[in-house]
Design a protein around this nucleic acid. Structure first.
Lengths: 326, 326
DNA sequence: ATGAAAGCGCTAACAT
DNA sequence: ATGTTAGCGCTTTCAT
């Protein structure tokens, strides 16, 4: 490590060292005004010699922007969110912004407090991947900063947002199961989620009876619990749609423990397309969310830059063996 | 969303509204000076009414600290790092600091650039989880801010740092395999890592021949590749020590595909203790790193606060079925 | 207990 | 092409 040594070279030090005024240093560094080549070179040399680092706080104060965006996620430990955050970071940094990631742990009080603290840090905008209720919409709007919802289970009235069409994705995944010939297709997930609507609709449009529902949130542990129930009911189930990869991974553990064969006894299809799905056993057929595209659109919308297509990004089914293919 | 509406209530607005001076608002909010109860109440009311949010940039400029710490990790998408980051965030926020997480993608040039940008953002210190070479030590020290290494494969000379005793952990894990009676124990990981030394030493002290080595970094994909080689050589291997859970998950996929039974044909023990290990199939016996403790020590060291025990945190072996137990 | 005022490091008119 | 200067919103002596 290093001591908090007596170091703080300012723009002024650089100016003196280079024998110019403060402004010229700014001009040189930010390229907003013409500077004589020789002068510029001298300034740059001084910057290097002195090891000058601009003070972002001063800049933020002056500019009213910290070139920072915030993102509120339920849990960065969940691979889907961590992959998405990384994509967001990648496009943000390309645009010259840093990203402050904060965890809400799915607690709304917390989310509002976090939004406040982001606001006080002068973020130029923030993304909310946690569930957003109407009361939060009000609270967020009151902050007077741009914000957008990211991949919420349903579009939020009155709020800007981007997210895949979850209902359509669930239909695509469910249809694949139907095409395999499975007729008793169960659902694991939340019934308040658009994926539930998609599963229901697809079953109906194929003239199939509604399947069994095993309620769960999106985590592995919850999937494991649902998986135990599913195993117990496996005689009445051919296949199952899982609302997230994590859920599927948890459920498959329970299925394995109960000796239920996948896909022979129960076929599974899941949702998200995280890297874990590829390494699960058996490898999961999953509806991959286009996280890169999602991140791109979200950041550009937030920054009010770029041309943004008006259609919702659509997921893509990745076929592996859990559904019975190959 | 909300427009970037004409909003910017400053401390001065609050002061006017409450009929006091700017200073009194600060006194009230920061509790650093005595304020008459009635005045304080009035100020607080004005804050509420006006929806005042302090400007962190101004505060940072004045104070020379943004109450921010940075952390440079190789890849937040890797569950071990994301879990660790979340722990760091949790203790930092308890101490009143936010955390800026950045990805180095294991690129040293990048790491130095990131450290620079953290410095310019006035972080109070930063943690480096990426590999740190001597040249980086110099670069980091030159920044004049506190920094510490976090969980590097080896302690870094001249740098403050915290991390588990990887060598000891690898010995513990390897010993467990030996106690099972396995005698031909392979290694998957990097030979430049302390875990390799631990595996080697434990084998030697048990009087066993050195086992097969399958080089790999710490990712799933790399584990998968190593796993294929391992499968091909499985007749000469009883058990294997994997340097990370991710590696083990990737390798197990290859083993399954090759029809190699776990633990019957090859037993496995891994390292890290991430949540994935619990849901892998079969569930992984793993040497769990004490991430909470690591995060606690790292942040407190960085902030130069609290009493920090001088011994290295030690991992704990979590027994599941991949090693042949139960 | 409260107020006045200086200044943190930077940018951007506005002069020259 | 370069210099001067006025703040951005906050904290903190130093007065009162």
């Amino acid at each position: 490590m290093s001591e908090g040594a007596p170091r703080k070279v300012t723009r002024r030090d650089v100016a003196r060292h280079a024998g110019v005024s403060d402004a010229v240093v700014t001009y040189t560094l930010n390229g907003k005004a013409p500077v004589a080549p020789a002068t510029a070179a001298r300034v740059r040399e001084s910057v290097r010699l002195l090891g000058y680092t601009p003070n972002a706080a001063a800049r933020a104060l002056k500019m009213g922007s910290a070139r920072l965006i915030g993102i509120i996620v339920p849990d960065t430990t969940n691979p889907f969110w961590s992959e998405l955050c990384q994509q967001v970071e990648s496009v943000a940094s390309r645009e010259g912004y840093a990203v402050l990631v904060v965890n809400s742990h799915d607690d709304d009080k917390q989310a509002i407090a976090l939004a406040n603290s982001l606001a006080s840090r002068q973020v130029d905008g923030f993304l909310v991947a946690s569930i957003v209720r109407p009361s939060e919409v009000t609270a967020f709007d009151a902050l007077g900063i741009r914000w957008a919802s990211l991949n919420n289970p349903h579009p939020i009235p009155g709020a800007m947002g981007v997210g895949v069409d979850l209902e359509q994705g669930a239909r695509d995944a469910t249809r694949h199961l139907i095409e395999h010939g499975y007729r008793r297709i169960a659902f694991v997930g939340s019934t308040k989620d658009a994926r539930y609507d998609g599963w229901t609709a697809e079953l109906a449009s194929a003239g199939l009876e509604p399947g069994l529902v095993f309620p769960a949130d999106f985590e592995r542990r919850s999937g494991y619990l649902a998986g135990r129930n599913l195993a117990a009911a496996s005689a009445q189930v051919d296949a199952v749609f899982m609302s997230s990869d994590q859920l599927a991974i948890g459920a498959m553990r329970a299925l394995h423990e109960a000796g239920v064969g996948i896909p022979n006894d129960v076929a599974v299809v899941s949702f998200d397309g995280t890297e874990d799905a590829e390494y699960a056993w058996p490898a999961l057929t999953t509806l991959a969310q286009p996280t890169a595209e999602l991140a791109e659109q979200a950041v550009l919308r937030l920054l009010g830059a770029g041309v943004i297509p008006d259609e919702r990004p659509r997921g893509e089914l990745i076929i592996r063996r859990s559904c019975g293919c190959e």
